[in-house]
Every structure is written in C-alpha cells, then in structure tokens.
Design a protein around this nucleic acid. Structure first.
Length: 197
DNA sequence: CAGCAGATTGACT
DNA sequence: GTCAATCTGCTGC
C-alpha cells in the first residue's frame, strides 16, 4: 500500500527520515517494477540547514522542486554524473527533503543488476545514494515526479522499532559548519545494505 | 568568464 | 590510498 500525501506533508523532517526506514521504495519503468526496503536516510532541514541546497531560501533552477508540497521527488545531479534521489517533505515553500542513501533489494533484482552492470547481488548494488538511483532507473528526468503516481512511489513495509535505528552525522557535508555535526543520518543497525557504518 | 567545490563512485597503485 | 569523471552554481577578477 502506497504512503499517502499526509505522510509527506508533515513538518518534522527528522521524524519522516526515521519513519522511511523499513518502507519500500518502488519504481515502474518500461514494464518492470523494481523495489527495495529503505535502510538508510538523511534529513535536510530546508531553510535553516547549512548542508541543505535550500539554506536561507536559496532558489535556483535545480532546487525549485524542493519548495513544492511534500510528496514529490527531488532528483539532482551530483559531481556532474550521479543522480541523487530525495523525498520532498513538509508544506509548499518549506523546502525540506530526505535523501535515500541505501536500500535492500526486494523485487526486480535482475533489472537492477542490469542497470548497474553487475552480475552478483552484493551490497555495492544499492548501498549508496547514486547506486540506489541507478538500480531503480531514477534520473534527473524524474525530478518533480509525484510520489503518489505510477512511476516512483513508496509503500508501507516492515515496522521498525526505535531500538533498530542508529544515527550519525551526515556523509559528505563537512562544508556545512556546525550543522555538519548534526546526527541526521539514520540507518538500520547491523544491516549489511547500509552504505557505511 | 575562469576557477573551484560539491549530499559520489569505480578503477587503479 | 589516490584520482579522474563531468554538470551546476557560486565567487572573484
């Protein structure tokens, strides 16, 4: 069952980042469904987070999507070659987002292997934000896509207890001053599909 | 307009 | 462990 609009429009992005653990991120392109359980996320707190693209209300062509109502995909190009998938949350204008950093493959594994040009199912298949996008076939073409539609969506999955959730500072945001130390990366304890522990 | 850094990854020493 | 790949957007001349 798909998550509803209401899941995404809540105002606490940290709560949403934690709630997304155990949920299933799904895509349907060219007749094939691929699906994986989210095991690692990072929260980006819109206007007041130095690590966030929308810090202090910055608007560019790239970040315009972040300002939309929660429940759409924010996909941007990182280092000129990696497509990173985020879930936009909160109300229109707040520009909060959750980066999905790793999933555990569930369905369409052969398709994922083909997209990643890999032969064996190992953590490198989907552990890492750019790897998640590539395995699911998500690119910047899908920036702004509605997560309640038929191409990219998130389903209820396994119920996660708070004891299973571990947190740490976010990866690759050293430039963000004091916000770099915030423990806003969330992942499932001892899960082999997490990008780094 | 040049230079540089970035929510990363894979190939190679 | 090191480094190149390659696009967007910011900074400074």
């Amino acid at each position: 069952m798909k998550l509803s609009r209401r899941f995404y429009t809540r105002s606490d992005v940290l709560l949403i980042a934690r709630s997304l653990l155990g949920k299933c991120l799904c895509s349907f392109f060219e007749g094939t469904t691929t699906k994986g359980m989210i095991v690692e996320t990072e929260a980006y707190d819109g206007l007041r987070d130095k690590a966030c693209h929308s810090y202090k209300g910055k608007r560019t062509k790239r970040t315009e999507t972040m300002y939309r109502q929660g429940g759409v995909a924010y996909v941007y190009l990182c280092y000129g070659l990696h497509h990173l998938f985020n879930v936009v949350t909160n109300k229109e204008g707040r520009a909060d987002a959750v980066l999905v950093r790793a999933i555990e493959p569930l369905d369409g594994v052969k398709t994922m292997l083909g997209r990643r040009k890999m032969e064996k199912v190992v953590p490198a298949l989907t552990a890492g934000p750019a790897r998640v996008s590539m395995a699911l076939g998500i690119t910047t073409r899908h920036n702004g896509r509605n997560l309640l539609g038929g191409e990219i969506w998130i389903e209820h999955g396994r119920v996660i207890s708070s004891k299973e959730i571990q947190s740490s500072p976010r990866v690759g945001v050293a430039y963000a001053g004091e916000d770099a130390a915030l423990p806003w990366r969330f992942f499932l304890k001892d899960n082999p599909w997490v990008s780094c522990s």
